[in-house]
Nucleic acid binder design. Sequence first.
DNA 1: TATAACATTGTTATATTATAACAAATTTAT
DNA 2: ATAAATTTGTTATAATATAACAATGTTATA
Lengths: 131, 131
Amino acid sequence: MAQKREYLSKNQKIVLDYIEKANQPLKAYSILFNVQKKGLKAPPQVYRALDRLVEIGKVHKIESKNAFVACKNSNCTISNATAFSICDGCEKVTEISNPKLSKYLSGFQDNSGMKYNKYNLEFFGLCKKCR
Amino acid sequence: MAQKREYLSKNQKIVLDYIEKANQPLKAYSILFNVQKKGLKAPPQVYRALDRLVEIGKVHKIESKNAFVACKNSNCTISNATAFSICDGCEKVTEISNPKLSKYLSGFQDNSGMKYNKYNLEFFGLCKKCR
DNA sequence: TATAACATTGTTATATTATAACAAATTTAT
DNA sequence: ATAAATTTGTTATAATATAACAATGTTATA
Ligand SMILES: [Zn+2]
Ligand SMILES: [Zn+2]
Ligand SMILES: [Zn+2]
Ligand SMILES: [Zn+2]
């Protein structure tokens, strides 16, 4: 059984700090560029930190944008049930925190025999400002 | 108003034919390699065809895998409401066709003021064989 | 404290995915 | 027939992500 630290390593903290300060999804290479002054010089350092942060649910990947955003859902320490709202106009991304929705999806079953333990949902549309 | 052909062009047909023969998601460069004998020599030719096929709903992109799969949902001529089941063991991907689910999600609203017109949902888990 | 086991970091190189830009050919509308 | 629009072919390059391995740091426990 591989043990894992329950605290964040130096690089993980640097990357998380930077992502948390942004209130929008960030691209990996944009993060890299911005944490170079902190000593992270090459892509693997950023991608490794991101992998871990995503794994523990501190950060989510917006798959349709290849971008990373801090979790805004304080009771979402696990990353196995994520839903986002994405504006096609201004690209604003918001994490949806809706107990009914998550309950519905977490309990979803079909007749395929699949046992689901994770989902990611991305909604697209236009926000108020962009309509 | 940009007019668009309602039939498929030569390259679009070639790419769609190939994707429809596979019963699994395919990567763009694997498609490229396999349609080179049909004359499509470079990435833009494949990506252009894919873009269009996705736009008209004949093909869906599995965002978490950067892969493309033919639509198996005959009444889904539009591509604005997609749901997939993905096995983390064998990587089998199935398009979910569940009227209740799609009705629930198509009608989803929150208090953010967003007007949703599209969603993509990816479920992950283990299929019968992989458990 | 030693030291072995393990996890993290630093580093270089490379793989994979996707698009920009523009000329040529084809198709469609007038 | 001609103009407009779309599709295609082509080259180059951008953007995203991982492999591989040595060096360093951390943890457990002998
Ligand atoms: Zn979250
Ligand atoms: Zn907007
Ligand atoms: Zn479909
Ligand atoms: Zn399976």
